[in-house]
Design a protein around this nucleic acid. Sequence first.
RNA 1: GGAGAGAUGGCCGAGUGGUCGAAGGCGCUUGCCUGCUAAGCAAGUGUGGGUUUUUCCCACCGUGGGUUCAAAUCCCACUCUCUCCGCCA
Length: 429
Amino acid sequence: MEVRALLDIKLIRSDSDRIKDLLKRRKKMPDNIDKVLKIDEGLREITTKLNSMRAERNSISKEVAKFKASKDEKGAEKILARGKELSTEIKIKEGELSKLQKRLKELLLIIPNVPFEKVPIGKDETENVELRRWGEPRKFNFKPKAHWDLGSKRGLLDFERASKLSGSRFTVLYRGAAQMERALISFMLDLHTSKHGYTEVMPPHLVSRETMINTGKLPKFEEESYSTTLDDLFLIPTAEVPLSALHGGEILEEKSLPLKYVAYTPCYRREAGSYGKDVKGMIRQHQFDKVELVMYTTPNKSYENLESLTHDAEEVLQYLKLPYRVIEICTGDLGFVASRTYDIEAWLPSYDDYKEISSCSNVTDYQARRANMRYRKSDNTLDFIHTLNGSGLAVGRTLVAIFENYQKENGMIEVPEVLRPYMRNKEEI
RNA sequence: GGAGAGAUGGCCGAGUGGUCGAAGGCGCUUGCCUGCUAAGCAAGUGUGGGUUUUUCCCACCGUGGGUUCAAAUCCCACUCUCUCCGCCA
C-alpha cells in the first residue's frame, strides 16, 4: 500500500487550508498537515529523480541484453561500468526515499479522521448537542436502588469475588443476571438479523497488530489495549475491529454494497486514564459484552446510512421500553477514526441522568484507506469504501439499565416482555 | 511440535536470469450478429505513483533483505495456506 494513500494526499495538496481548519476543530490536534506537505514535496522530488535514474539503468540493461544476444562481449563490457555505478547511486537514493516514507507514515498514522463539516464545533463533551428523546423516565414511588446495591443484595452481581479473581472493574453474574445477559445478546442479534438485514458474524477475539493499525486503534492507543506479548496479538476492544477489517485488501462489487454485519463479542479495554470514573458497579469494565453493527457503503451513501444504523440501535431500546436520548458528538469530543458520531444514552436512575449505551460513527474512508478496501464503480474505476460502526447495544450497560429501570420495591427485577421468550418466560428475576 | 508442498492479475493457471506487467483460459466491457435468451465473431480489459497530463517514465508476481548491468525467475529470513504425523477443546 502506497504510504501517501493513508490520507487523501491529493486532496490535502489542493485543499490544505480547509483540511487543516477541520482538523483543528478537534481537541489537542497538533498541526501536522504542514509537515506532511513538506515531506510529500521532498518525496516527490526524490521519486522523480529516482525514476529517471531507474529509467537509465533499465535502458542500459536492455542494451547489455542486446550485446549479449549478438555475442558482443566487448560492447557489453563498455557500458557495464556505468550500470554498476548507477546501481549504487540508486541504492543510496532508495535509502533516502524509504527514510522519508517511514517518517511520513509515522505522521499519517497518528492524524485522526477529518470531521464532517456539519459536526457542531465544541471543545469537549459539555458541548455535545442533544438531538431527540424517546420515552419518559419512570417516576418511582419508592427510592430506587443503584444496580450495584440491587445486584449485590439479591446475589445477582458479585463485585467482591470478581476482584478476587481478576482485580477491579470485573463482575461475576449469577442466575437471572447471567441468563438476562445471554437473553439480551440473543434478542439483539435476532432483531438485527431478521428485521434490519444484518449478517450475523462470529469473528476472532484476538487480532494481529496489523488489524489494529488498519482499524485505527494503533499506534495511538496501545496503552488502552490488552495484548499477548508472545504472539503480538491483541484482545479486541470492540467487534468493530475484526468486522471493519474483514474485507481488508479486497475489491468489492458496487452492487454488493451496502454490506451489513452484526456480531456479538466480549470487548476488552484497559481503561487506562479513567481512574476514578464510574468506579462503582458494572458501567465501566475491563471486559464487557457488546453486539456491534458494522456497515460497508459507497461514499455518497455513508451519511444517510449513519442515520439508519443509529435507528437500528435505537430500536433495541424501544423494544425494551427504556427511555433514551440521542446526542451528536461535537468536534472536541469526536473519536479518533470518526468523522461524525451519534451517541445513544439510556436513562439510569442511579446517575439521575442519561448514560452512553451506544456510539454510532461514520468512519468515511479512514479505515478503508488503512486496510486498502475499495469497490469497483459502474464506470469501472476504483474508490475507497466507507465504513460505519455502532453498538447495537452495549449489553452490560443494557442489563444495568433494565435492573435500575425495571426494579420493584421488593428488590425483584421485572423482565421486559420482549426478553421473556429468551428466559423461559420468566416474568421477574 | 515434526515432515513435506505451495503463495503470480477479479478468478483459474503458465512462466527457473534479459522485449514478462507477465502466455492461455474464465469472467467483465464494447461492437457485430440475433424475434428474445443462449451461442458465435471482433476488439478491449491489473494497481499505484511521478511528469512537460490525450505523452512519456517508474514501481509492484506473499513480506523483508541479498546477489547481478539486469530478478516473478537465483540466495537468505519471515508470514500465511494446504497435506501427513503427533498433541488436543
